[in-house]
Amino acid sequence: MRNLIAILCLITATLSWAQAPKVIDVSKEIEPTTSWLEEVDSGKYAASWQQAGAFFQENVPQTLWVSKLEQVRRPLGAVKSREGVSRQVLTSIPQLPDGDYVILEFQTDFENKAQSIETVMLKKSAEQWSVIGYFIQ
């Protein structure tokens, strides 16, 4: 639980510590994000953990991740619509090693909760983007 809270706090802190964007090619971030969100949307929470990046897996045990999504995500119901509303490209985030990061925000209407904001944080490793954080407001 502490690790999950730390990741959620990290994402919130990241948004307030945002720096000037670095121009890099982020077109490849969309596919892993979409694929990962599809796993979450379909209730395959363990699979979403397995697709997540190493930082995520090291800080959030799979059993905790699955139980928290059962508690938080499942009651929201099916996704009715999801639209990207912002993207931040960062090279430095407090408490994380320097690297290429992207924070994507989506306005998502769920069956049981309209106008939610989903935030997905990705890190580029070995020329691949992987999810290292997820938050729903």
Rank of each mutant, 00 (worst) to 15 (best):
F56E: 05
R73C: 11
V66C: 03
S67V: 10
S81T: 12
W36N: 03
T34P: 00
K68E: 09
D41S: 15
A126N: 15
E70D: 15
A20Y: 05
C9W: 03
L64V: 14
A78I: 08
Q57C: 01
Q57S: 09
V120S: 11
A52K: 00
S92A: 11
G99I: 12
F106D: 05
L104A: 15
P32I: 05
I5E: 09
L96N: 00
V66E: 06
S27I: 04
T119L: 03
K28C: 08
Q51C: 05
F55E: 14
E29H: 09
K80L: 09
E58H: 08
I103C: 10
V89N: 15
A20F: 10
Q62A: 09
P21G: 09
E31V: 04
A46Q: 13
K113V: 10
Y101M: 13
R2E: 04
V72W: 03
P97W: 04
E29P: 05
L90R: 04
I136V: 14
V131F: 01
D100C: 12
A114Y: 13
T63E: 13
I11A: 01
I11G: 03
D98S: 13
W36H: 12
W129D: 07
D41L: 11
A47K: 14
R2L: 14
L90D: 01
Y45W: 06
K28P: 02
K22C: 15
T34D: 15
A52E: 03
V66W: 03
L15G: 06
Y134V: 11
Q115L: 14
L37Q: 09
E127M: 07
R2P: 01
L69E: 00
